[in-house]
Structure formats: C-alpha cells, structure tokens
Design a protein around this nucleic acid. Sequence first.
DNA 1: TGTAGCATGTAAGCCGTTACATGATTGA
DNA 2: TCAATCATGTAACGGCTTACATGCTACA
Lengths: 204, 204
Amino acid sequence: MGSGLSTTSHALLGLLVFDRQTSEEGMTGYELKQRADYTLRFYWVSPAMSQIYTELGRLSGQGLVEPIDDESGKRPTRRYRVTVAGRAALDTWLHSTEAEFPVLKHPVALRLLMGQLIDPRALADLLLNYQTGLREHRADLQAVRDMLGSNRETAFPAMVAEWGLDYYDAETRIVRRIADEIARSWIQHTDDVPHRRPRVDTPT
Amino acid sequence: MGSGLSTTSHALLGLLVFDRQTSEEGMTGYELKQRADYTLRFYWVSPAMSQIYTELGRLSGQGLVEPIDDESGKRPTRRYRVTVAGRAALDTWLHSTEAEFPVLKHPVALRLLMGQLIDPRALADLLLNYQTGLREHRADLQAVRDMLGSNRETAFPAMVAEWGLDYYDAETRIVRRIADEIARSWIQHTDDVPHRRPRVDTPT
DNA sequence: TGTAGCATGTAAGCCGTTACATGATTGA
DNA sequence: TCAATCATGTAACGGCTTACATGCTACA
C-alpha cells in the first residue's frame, strides 16, 4: 500500500468521511465499530474494537484523522474527524492503487469439496445451516438497503447493498440446487455410498 | 478449533487425503502448493510455500501426517502421507464443528461504496478491470471443472467447481448491470458532475 | 442493585506474508 | 550456459483476534 496503510485503514477512513450520523462532529471508536458491524462486514470485515482503536491511533499519528476531545456530552469521549490530508490520502488510494481481486473464504464449499468423507445427514445439515445463515444475512442487509432510501447521496452505498442482496440470492439458488442434487443421488444409491463410518475418537 | 488446528491445516489435510495424482505415495510440500493454487484458492486461500511447510511440520508434530523420505527419484524429496489419526482428525473436524459463514473481502465493492469520491473514468476502469479478472478466474476454474470429468469419485469437487462457476456468472451479471447503471446516470447528469479532476467538496 | 450498553485501551499470541538463503534438475 | 522450475526451509514482521483491565451511565 502506497502510504503504508492497510485496506482496513482506508475502509475506516472512508466510513469517517461519510460521517453524517450524529449531530456531533466526527465519530468515536465505538460508533465506528457500530458502522462497521452494520455495513462494512458485508464487503470487507468488521475489525475488533481493539483494532479500531489501534487504527485510529495510527491514522492519528499520520495526521489523517484528528482527535477531538468532546466534553460537551454527559461523559467525555474522543471523536475523530478526517483531516484534509486524510481526505487526500483516501483520494490517492482510490485513484492510484489497483483493486485486488476479491478473496472468498468459504468454509461450506471447502467442506463440500470433501463431501465424500461426510456422513449424508451431516452434509444435509451443513447445507441447511448455510441456507439459514444466508437468510439471516440477507435480512440484515435488506434492512441496510431500506435504511438508505433512494436519494442521490446514498446512491452508491445503496447500489452496493443491492449487489450484496443479488449475491445472496444467487448463492441461495445455487445451494438449493446442490442440496437437491445431493438428496436425489443419495436416494438413488444408498447401497454403495463410499462413506466410511466416522470414527469420532480424539486424535492422539 | 477442537484440535488446535486452523481451517487451513484441515484444508491441506483434505488435499492430502485425496492424494491420487502421482504414482508415488503421499505428496511433497511443493505438490501440495500446486494443488492449492489449482483448486483451493477458489474457495479458501492458497497459502504461501513457507506456510505449507510450516503446516506440514505442525501436522507432522501431531502425528496427523507422516513424512516419508523418498530417495527413489532423481533427487531426494520428503513426501507426506495422512496417518490414521490424521484421517480421524479430519472426520472429527468435518462432523463435530460448525462451518462458519463465508467471509468475503471485496475490494471492488468496498471502493464502490465510496463511489461518490471516485472520478467517473476511474470508476468505469475499476468495474472493467474487475470484469476482466472475473473472466480470467472463470476460465481457470472452468479448466478445473473440465479436468474433473464426471465420475463418481470427483462428483463433489465437480459440484463445488460448478458452484464457483455459477458464482462468477452471477457476479458478472451483477457487475455488468451496475456498470450500465453508472454509465447511464453519468450521462444524465454530466451537468452537475465535474468533468475533469473531481474536486468533491471537502467535509468540515 | 445489578446488568446491559457506552467507551477506551493494553498484552499475548496466532496466522500468514514477504524476504532471505540454498541448492539441484531440466530444457532452450 | 543460463533461466525456469523443483524443492525446502528460516527470519522478520504485519494484521488481526481474544483476553484482560477499567470505569461510567441508563434503566428495569
């Protein structure tokens, strides 16, 4: 990364730029975490609280964000605001670095790859659980999309939310098809499935 | 993780179980890396060589794989074979741990989220490059799928490869739609979008 | 009164990468 | 002979998580 900042740093910087949520200026680490949980997790990750504070410290050290000690509230908190340098750093990142190809870590597909070693019932459960997870995630993301409405300022976040929804829909269709396929072929040859009875003893 | 092994460890253990590629018994770290590059990267990650050797050392230490010093070839190499305990550990992992929900790190979606800050031309490039990447990845995965043929032993890997292909197809459709949408709305309001360098108003 | 949420951090440690180091074999 | 590929590792370090530590505020 040109400036020595990770993608996560830039993502947080981006959240900070699109502040507009409270009447206060800037955001606290806590608020940042909430925002990350709300949206960022669907396309990137939601860093741990400790990581947020660490990044904020780093960004602060580079002068990309500016801490404002806010005593006005019921309790003193530290808010962070993007500086001009921070805004410039984000622009540079957006315009002069290539976007890497997405990385997908898919434990369900990984297990299905070894489907031969999995008990048919466990396999069915695996896909069923995943379908449930998909429904839940989709619902959460739908709430995000609804919240965004349809005004010009939120057009891009809304677009990305819809992208995510489409992705979940596609994934749901594919998994349903696979589950059906497996169920069918299981019924057809319950006699010769090459599955060894799983020894559930502890290794070593 | 029950046994203290990472998902990556189990993934490598899985590759080792479905050995069947050379006449030799077991696989070298190098071969394992090739296999990971070939398939694993689509659903999980392909660890660095150094990481492969580290994992092999760890698995070896736990008695889950067994090193075989092979002097028969032109040059001595160390092959690794899954032990009975290793096979049991994989079974345990597959049957008694829940599969987490997939994690997607999507730099393109992340940038699109901040689309407002991106120059329209750079934005178009971003999506164009991604579409190229999708085509390339799809072609690589198609080759994997073709290689797998349609016999009983490769049914699961083939299923997962097709899943991946469907995913790339869905993604391609979505991105094309988004790119069109952006192009259309850009043409519609070229009046209120700065034509040259985007000096979007600084917050504050 | 006590629990959930707000709020901020430090420390230990894992997972994984890049860089470094080494050397043999194959084929243009 | 020179580059690419095969082959195996160690060292330094970054990014991120969990666990730990602290304390205030709202509310049931």
